[in-house]
């Protein structure tokens, strides 16, 4: 169907005195909005130069769902208007329970729009399949969303439209508040916390920004209908799904650091498992690729002396300096200084 045909059926597109350009812009906005909601409106190029649009019913409706025949009648599907027509996609009860559990887990990620999308998905599936209450032996403490939900909504919007964002951010390394102009690539949940993975435009490097440390996020309003940047074709946020420690985040050039562990200390022995064995040298030494030295030093300090950096000099010095400053605090407090 061409726009002209559509416009006849939509009162807003045939308001008297409205220019064709204005009507087309309105149509483009509506089309984008519907596509964003998941309505699969296709643009069809025909021999004529006029663009045509198609909404195929086979792509629009949810396929008919059912349980595998081998599941018998133990859990009959919900009765729907579709009567007894055979299902197009089937699940075992176990698989369907897994989907419901997945939806429940998605709701507890501390991300309001993901939670809403998970609820909406279950609403649709329950047209054909029953809602089964999950086992009550598991509790998920929701990831705190307080203060984050507005920021997450802004970041989602920027991610979907490929718009740059100005962040007000308190960094972990130096604790300073700064403004960063970034091109957002994705949101990563790491150990129960959301991180924005984005190109820091000034540094021209991909960085991880902890969302709870973003106090303000403003999407660029320039050329609102156009993308500000392209995400590199080889970037996939799922590639970052291997868990990493704080000192491994970011894309700065890693420093190689060798640490000696006291294996008689159980916690240190577990920490050593995160490092790489050396091909030569002490068996108790491990090598680490460090992108954030300050985070790494803090991690080493937590072993209370049972993990000692051997190299490079910068890490060893920073480790000793932090301990020296900390000891000075205790000495000064003992002397009654504030």
């Amino acid at each position: 169907m061409a726009f002209e045909q559509l416009a006849k059926d939509v009162p807003a597109y045939r308001a008297p005195g409205q220019q064709l350009g204005a009507r087309m812009r309105m149509f483009e906005r509506d089309k984008d909005e519907l596509r964003k909601l998941g309505v699969p409106i296709e643009t069809v190029e025909l021999a004529s130069e006029t663009k045509h649009y198609r909404l195929a019913s086979r792509n629009f409706y949810l396929p008919r769902l059912g349980f595998d025949a081998r599941e018998g009648t133990a859990r009959p599907p919900s009765k729907s208007a579709e009567g007894n027509r055979p299902p197009e996609v089937t699940f075992s009860v176990e698989e369907y329970e897994m989907i419901l559990r997945a939806a429940a887990r998605a709701q507890d990620l501390g991300h309001p729009s993901i939670a809403r999308d998970a609820v909406a998905a279950v609403q649709k599936l329950s047209f054909d399949l029953p809602i089964i209450d999950p086992e009550s032996t598991e509790w998920i403490v929701p990831t705190p969303a307080a203060g984050d939900s507005v920021i997450l909504a802004v970041l989602d919007d920027a991610l979907q439209r490929h718009k740059t964002v100005r962040l007000t951010y308190r960094s972990n390394e130096h604790g300073v508040v700064s403004r960063r102009d970034v091109s957002p690539y994705g949101l990563l949940m790491l150990r129960g916390r959301w991180f924005l993975v984005a190109l820091d435009n000034r540094a021209s490097a991909v960085r991880h920004f902890r969302v709870s440390r973003i106090s303000r996020a403003v999407v660029s309003v320039r050329n609102a209908q156009r993308a500000d940047f392209d995400v590199p074709s080889d970037f996939d946020i799922r590639d970052l799904s291997e868990e990493r420690r704080a000192w491994e985040l970011g894309d700065g050039r890693p420093i190689s650091s060798v640490v000696e562990f006291d294996f008689s200390d159980a916690v240190a022995a577990r920490g050593a498992e995160l490092g790489e064995r050396l091909t030569s040298g002490r068996a108790s030494s491990r090598r680490f690729a460090v992108r954030r030295p300050e985070s790494f030093v803090r991690w080493l300090l937590a072993f209370a002396g049972a993990a000692r950096p051997i190299s490079p000099h910068a890490i060893v010095s920073a480790w000793r300096a932090a301990a020296k400053d900390a000891y000075a605090n205790y000495a000064s407090a003992d002397r009654g200084e504030s």
Partner: peptide, 12 residues
């Protein structure tokens, strides 16, 4: 019938 899952719902 309901609409198929949107990419965002599927992603959740």
């Amino acid at each position: 019938r309901p609409m198929a899952l949107s990419p965002r719902e599927s992603s959740a």
